[in-house]
């Protein structure tokens, strides 16, 4: 799976991954003005890491993105989203009402949307990579595991 013998794949993946990450960030923060948003951005961000894992091997990808970081991102996204809602409540409005987050209701809405999209993006990114890593770490079917056949 390491594909050490495929230099074209390795070089083109190395070239592509920064641009995929950049495009994901563009989709994330430009969602107000064009198509896209947190969900799509999270998926594209995750796709860059999955490409890295496919080309350079799952173990080096795990060094880049350790499981702890993934789990923290996973929880942090939902917390950020719900936290923005609770913040609106603390400031005296309804849950998830962003208009009171800033002096100007439009700016409040803008800030709120930016933050919750970031939360969605974080959670989606972490969820996609977590699911992928969970599947990819299981190299073999459980029955044919060589560890289990040793007496």
């Amino acid at each position: 799976m390491m594909m050490r013998q495929k230099p074209i794949l390795r070089v083109s993946a190395k070239l592509l991954i920064p641009f995929i990450l950049l495009f994901a960030l563009y989709v994330q923060f430009h969602g107000d003005y064009g198509p896209g948003g947190g969900f799509q951005a999270g998926v594209i961000f995750a796709a860059a890491f999955i490409l890295y894992a496919l080309v350079f091997g799952i173990d080096s990808a795990r060094d880049v993105l350790p499981g702890g970081a993934r789990r923290i991102c996973l929880a942090l996204g939902v917390l950020l989203y719900a936290g923005v809602g609770v913040d609106g409540m603390l400031l005296g409005g309804n849950f998830l009402n962003y208009s009171i987050l800033a002096q100007d209701p439009h700016e409040g809405q803008h800030l709120g949307i930016l933050l919750i999209e970031l939360g969605v993006g974080l959670t989606v990114f972490a969820a996609m990579t977590t699911i992928f890593f969970a599947f990819a770490s299981q190299d073999m079917p459980a029955g044919t595991d060589p560890d289990q056949e040793t007496p």
Partner: peptide, 12 residues
């Protein structure tokens, strides 16, 4: 506010 109505509906 945002020009993309889809984002307004989804997020707000």
């Amino acid at each position: 506010g945002p020009p993309n109505i889809v984002t307004s509906v989804l997020a707000s």
